[in-house]
């Protein structure tokens, strides 16, 4: 289990969309904890609240109750506890999406180096850090390519590099393997595991991809707005 105050900790999280008769109770008291260096799966049927949970964790949707801790920061406790959510997302959370959503007019290196460059870090430094990550993800040879020239698997690895560039304590991955074949999907999961260990990052992977579900050590099953913890197979197919 996660050490208190590190990784991701969620307690009794509620989210209600709308008010009155049309209100939808998407999250009805979610409890979840992910330790630094750990990758957990979040699974559940469509409409069960997976995306809502990710949006709350990503600080783009405000919960209606409960408590969230990211890394060493209490970010939500019956109200946001962080004044600048944008900076929180930039510095503390890495996002990986179903589609890589790379910036089409920037090359691979600059896609990865974008955030630090926009934050004012010298371009050379930011690009060096980006190349280091690209090397760790085995896409260094595509560093100068444009996103449109990459395969799906390569794009997804670049997207992971982008998510890692600020060394966030948390990575939120939304169906990161959906468009990939099983070999590439497993490669992405292996990389996420390696990165999680290497950078002590807590990783949540939302998925309903049968190919990768067996790889998780722990799985949160979300049903009807509530989480149920399960032991996974933890099978890393080498």
């Amino acid at each position: 289990m996660a050490e208190p105050g590190l990784g991701i900790r969620i307690q009794g999280l509620h989210k209600r969309y709308g008010t009155g008769d049309t209100a939808v109770e998407a999250l009805k008291g979610v409890d979840l904890a992910v330790a630094p260096g750990e990758v957990v799966g979040l699974i559940g049927p469509s409409g069960s609240g997976k995306s809502t949970l990710l949006k709350c964790l990503g600080a783009v949707v405000e919960p209606t109750g409960g408590r969230m801790t990211l890394g060493s920061d209490l970010i939500y406790h019956d109200g946001w506890r962080i004044p600048d959510l944008r900076a929180l997302r930039r510095d503390k959370i890495g996002f990986v999406f179903q589609a890589p959503y790379l910036i089409p007019f920037l090359n691979v290196t600059d896609n990865v180096a974008l955030l630090p460059m926009l934050a004012g870090r010298p371009n050379r430094e930011a690009r060096a850090a980006a190349r280091e990550l690209l090397a760790a993800l085995d896409v260094a040879h595509r560093a100068a390519a444009m996103p449109s020239q990459l395969s799906g698997g390569e794009q997804q690895r670049v997207a992971i590099a982008r998510a890692l560039i600020n060394r966030p304590p948390v990575i939120l991955a939304d169906e990161p393997t959906a468009p990939l074949d099983s070999e590439r999907a497993l490669a992405v999961i292996r990389i996420l595991n390696r990165m999680a260990r290497q950078y002590a990052t807590a990783v949540i992977v939302v998925t309903h991809d049968e190919k990768i579900i067996p790889t998780f050590q722990r799985i949160y099953q979300i049903r009807d707005g509530r989480t149920h913890e399960e032991a996974g197979l933890g099978r890393m197919l080498e």
Binding site: G58, V60, R89, Y101, I103, P104
Partner: peptide, 10 residues
């Protein structure tokens, strides 16, 4: 892409 840029903190 703009939504992504905003999400990741631009």
């Amino acid at each position: 892409e703009i939504a992504v840029l905003k999400l990741i903190g631009t």
